[in-house]
Design a protein around this nucleic acid. Structure first.
Length: 938
RNA sequence: GCUCGAGUGGUGGAAUUGGUAGACACGUUGGACUUAAAAUCCAAUGACCAUUGCGGUCGUGCGGGUUCAAGUCCCGCCUCGAGUACCA
């Protein structure tokens, strides 16, 4: 008879909800602990068993910390702006808010069944105006900030304005656009207001600029770099092209160094940190300026190898480089134009898949080498990317493999500047102890020495300077979508202005259609009325736009990552109408102590959120500049798909064992219709897909056998396991423990429904141990020392495992303990009480029930966690393996208190030792107290 | 190509960080209970040899090395996974 998990789980879930058991206190004198999950995007498909894994792990820690006396903040909410709801709206006309609402309700139902200890009173949605008004507010703070590189800090824009009006751009070290003009104070003061505003855009942390963006025509929007994977959109896999557009951009690049450094102080998985480091892509080198011969122009390049300057035999510009048109000679113009056009028409993907082909064209122009004064030809090649560095390189064929191949292909001379090295077949790329030759004043120096000497010289003659280059680009922030946060900006004479702060939120307007307008404006262009809050809600009709009193609003919306870049702060004070978060709450809750989520967000959410946090920190709004002390990436739970095989071109389906030598294609079968022995149920197959009724099946032993294969869990692969079904069949406590038991949290692992019986059996066993004929029954006898030892060993192991985040082994420890208790028929009250608390983080429902039956007042959630008593763990005897030359021969039971010498003597005195030695001499005896005795002889 | 990470029974995975490899669980086999099944309980389960002995030999991807002792440390490979890619 199974334990009544259904009634138990219902009872305690409603108890927790009614009593708000898991709401933390504020203020509180207790130490705080903040456990956070990456909040979900509520998709239409609902949850599968893979989704809750991270939530279960964080819930164990949250409950554990409550027992340990912490005031625990463990919230949950929804990242509810996003593409799928919008795509659905485009197809069906249903407002995304409605789709989202439905999906959230479904998510909530599913989550509630698993018994999480979330404080639901703090729930919010990023698509709710009461939340996104603060996302808009943060946008305003970014707009009103600039980056002072002198002190490495973002500052209010007013300070910059003061500086400009007093000193102009003199003594100003700001992170700004490359092409920002320098102004004297009087020039600045002479500018009209609009001109000043335009000028300030060069400095603002979020700015409007025309730039090359990743445009995805199918999605009808631009994408950030991290949303483009292998030249196609991450979502949908559509082609992406480069396009010049005026967009809102976030100046994340000025934080490159701090984002990099900050990684050292936080406990995040090393691979993830590595991904962020690569993404930021710091490289140390120098910029060098080459004068263009007979033109009034310079080409600036970035190089990591200033030591190889004398090896430069040509230069290469990206086809998009601004100087191409100017410097191309008339003879070369046709070829150059054709080449530029060609590369422009090639999609990102073509260009990438075609890396091996060397293409390029000579411009006819020459540059003057800044050191040697020689003329070097200027070429164009699409191996040089417009988006990195300056979009131009100095080519050193002897020291760079691509330059080398380019030179060989076009027959450009190669100068060898390395002493005693053969470079006839390949470039010499390693740095090492190589000495430089053929390089005037660099001759005889090592690479490192030459690098420094060359930079010093360049700086002296004013032709270059040391520079650290980052791969990290500023992030495009505009999306041509409907379902996102409106950007709180209006345009006056084409100049962007923030709407007044007291008018927030600027509410997402209703539209007839979710597609771009006929004039090509984003979907918000379809809106005829906008609402914003100014005392009472005020509606602005688009008809009233006269550009005198009423101005047009920004029609782009924010990207998906906006709302998720600061939400961890909002949980501290989710209902606050006056501030984004109250300061003393920020001070109390501080950093997230444990953050759990997938590693797929490495270069997206996890980078942008660190960026925003740093800006908010600089501006004095948050007390810490990193927001998550420890991050754990939970691995994916994979599905075990099932396949049967269709003979190609027929309606004949084969059992998996019969496909040898046949021409077949695998067909997914829903895993629900396949049993543990991989037998497919015919009946259900017919009900599922009527067309199988007309098919013929070739069977093995009268059965249709499916082949299993591990794949990502997804609806289209028919391998989804719904947690609801598991809760129905086995209960939430079993689901929780089984998900943890599957393997280490960080690892990807397949879901195997067959294995669940082990955990289910464990909980039943635990229940039965304290029940007789369905009646609760505990013994009041004192437990034996053996049982106490078992209990305390488990306490020690489980506590240690939770600290180490090794939850799968903690589950095993419970199983061992219950097996031992069962074998000894030990159902003592003194054992059950601590065990109930110990197990509560893992299987909270059953534990609450037993706790109540023990006569305690629910809930047990703040009951102190048991502590292992070393008294009970003490060994009286220890079994020592006695080994000879590392090979074990026999064991010896010795007093646990025995000293090293006593152990050694006992081992040597044993007659079996004498037998084994048999005349051999003892060379050494190694004794490790509590572990082993090894006798080395020979 | 580069950068990380990982290779342990039929399977998922343990191993206090150099100290009796294979915990725990699934699966499999046998047994008990049952008219039968389910459920439950007990036993066996790395391989090979011996099982009329207690045992022995080999075993953590492959090849070397250090050590009394290596899954664990070092050197050289192989395979798989993840990330990234003309980054100057």
């Amino acid at each position: 008879m199974a334990y009544p998990f259904r009634s138990i789980e219902n009872k305690w879930q409603s108890f927790w909800a009614t009593n708000r058991t898991f709401s933390p206190n504020f203020p509180s004198t207790k130490p705080k602990y903040y456990v956070l999950d990456m909040f979900p995007y509520p998709s239409g498909a609902g949850l599968h068993v893979g989704h809750p894994l991270g939530y279960i792990a964080s819930d164990v820690v949250a409950r554990f910390k409550r027992h340990k006396g912490f005031n625990v903040l463990h919230p949950q909410g929804y990242d509810s702006f996003g593409l799928p709801a919008e795509q659905y709206a485009i197809q069906t006309g249903q407002h995304p808010a409605k789709t989202t609402e439905t999906n959230i309700n479904r998510y909530r139902e599913q989550l509630d069944r698993i018994g999480f200890s979330f404080d639901w009173s703090r729930e919010f949605r990023t698509s709710d105006p009461s939340y996104y008004r603060w996302t808009q507010w943060i946008f305003m703070q970014l707009f009103n900030a600039w980056y002072d590189a002198k002190v490495d800090q973002a500052k209010p824009i007013d300070e910059l304005i003061d500086h400009l009006s007093q000193h102009g751009s003199k003594n100003l070290d700001a992170d700004c656009d490359e092409n920002t003009p320098s102004l004297a104070a009087h020039q600045w003061n002479a500018l009209s207001n609009d001109e000043q505003q335009t000028h300030l855009l060069h400095y603002r942390m979020t700015y409007l600029a025309e730039s090359e963006v990743n445009w995805c025509p199918q999605l009808g929007t631009v994408l950030a770099n991290d949303e483009v994977v292998n030249g196609v959109s991450e979502r949908g896999g559509y082609a992406v092209e480069r396009k010049k557009m005026t967009q809102w951009i976030m100046r994340i690049s000025c934080y490159a160094e701090r984002l990099l450094k900050g990684l050292d102080g936080i406990d995040w998985p090393e691979p993830l940190k590595e991904m962020q480091r690569n993404w930021i892509g710091r490289s140390v080198g120098a910029t060098v300026r080459f004068q263009v011969s007979s033109h009034d122009a310079e080409i600036e390049v970035f190089t990591t190898r200033p030591d190889t300057l004398f090896g430069v035999t040509f230069m290469t510009l990206a086809p998009e480089h601004a100087l191409v048109d100017m410097i191309t000679t008339d003879e070369q113009r046709n070829m150059v134009n054709r080449y530029v056009e060609q590369s422009a028409n090639r999609s990102e993907r073509d260009r990438m898949s075609d890396v091996k082909n060397i293409t390029g064209v000579f411009t006819g122009a020459y540059a003057i080498h800044p050191l040697s004064g020689e003329k070097v030809p200027i070429w164009i090649g699409d191996y040089v990317l417009a988006g990195y560095g300056t979009g131009a390189v100095m080519a050193v064929p002897c020291g760079d493999q691509r330059d080398f191949e380019f030179a060989k292909h076009f027959d450009i001379p190669i100068t060898n500047i390395f002493a005693d090295l053969d470079i006839s077949n390949a470039a010499h790329v390693e740095k090492g102890e190589t000495r430089i030759a053929n390089s005037d004043f660099l001759n005889g120096l090592t690479v490192a020495e030459a690098t420094q000497t060359a930079i010093d010289y360049l700086e002296k003659i004013g032709s270059g300077k040391a520079k650290i280059q980052y791969r990290l680009r500023d992030a495009v922030f505009s999306r041509q979508r409907y379902w996102g946060e409106p950007i709180p900006v209006y345009f006056k004479n084409g100049i962007p202005h923030l709407i007044p702060e007291h008018c927030l939120p600027l509410t997402l307007p209703q539209v007839e259609k979710y597609l771009p307008t006929e004039t090509g404006d984003p979907p918000l262009g379809n809106a005829t009325e906008w609402a914003w809050h100014e005392a009472d809600e005020k509606v602005i009709s688009v008809d009233l736009i006269d550009n005198k009193e009423v101005f047009p609003l920004e029609l782009n919306t924010m990207p998906g990552w906006a709302g998720s870049s600061w939400y961890f702060n909002r949980y501290m004070d989710p209902k606050n109408q006056n501030e984004f978060v109250q300061k003393d709450k920020l001070d109390y809750w501080g950093m997230v102590d444990l953050y759990i989520g997938g590693s797929e967000h490495a270069t997206g959410h996890l980078l942008y959120s660190r960026f925003w946090q740093k800006v908010l920190f600089d501006l004095g709004y948050v007390p810490v500049d990193e927001y998550a002390q420890k991050l754990v990436n939970q691995g994916m739970i994979l599905g075990e798909s099932a396949f049967i095989y269709r003979k190609t071109g027929t309606q004949t389906y084969l059992s998996a064992g019969l496909i040898q030598g046949q021409n077949v294609e695998p067909i997914h079968v829903d895993v629900a219709y396949v049993d543990a022995n991989n037998v497919v149920s015919h009946e259900e197959l017919h009900n599922w897909r009527p067309e199988f009724g007309e098919a013929t099946f070739e069977l093995e032993d009268g059965q249709l056998i499916a082949k299993r294969e591990v794949e990502k869990m997804s609806k289209s692969k028919y391998n989804v396991v719904n947690p609801d079904d598991i809760c129905d069949q086995y209960g939430a406590d079993t689901l929780r423990m089984y998900e943890l038991f599957l393997g280490p949290i960080e690892q990807a692992k397949p879901w195997n429904t067959a294995g669940i019986s082990g955990v289910y059996g464990f909980l039943n066993k635990f229940w039965r141990l304290f029940h007789e004929n369905e009646q609760f029954s505990v013994s009041d006898q004192p437990p034996s020392s053996g049982m106490l030892k078992s209990l305390h060993a488990t306490i020690e192991k489980v506590t240690h495992d939770i600290d180490q985040f090794s939850l799968n082994t903690a589950v095993s420890a419970f199983m061992i303990c219950v097996n031992e208790l069962t074998a000894a028929k030990c159902n003592h009250r003194a054992i059950l009480k601590p065990l109930t608390v110990l197990l509560a983080p893992f299987a909270p429902h059953i534990c609450e029930e037993l706790w109540e039956k023990l006569g305690h007042t629910p809930s047990l959630s703040n009951e102190p966690y048991p502590i292992a008593d070393p008294m009970h763990l003490k060994e009286t005897q220890i079994t020592y393996p006695i080994s000879f030359n590392g090979k074990m021969r026999f064991t010896l039971d010795l007093d646990a208190e025995a000293t090293k010498d006593e152990i050694e003597q006992a081992a040597l005195a044993d007659e079996r030792t004498a037998q084994y030695l048999d005349g051999k001499t003892i060379r050494k005896v190694i004794v490790v107290p509590g572990k082993i005795v090894n006798i080395v002889c020979g």
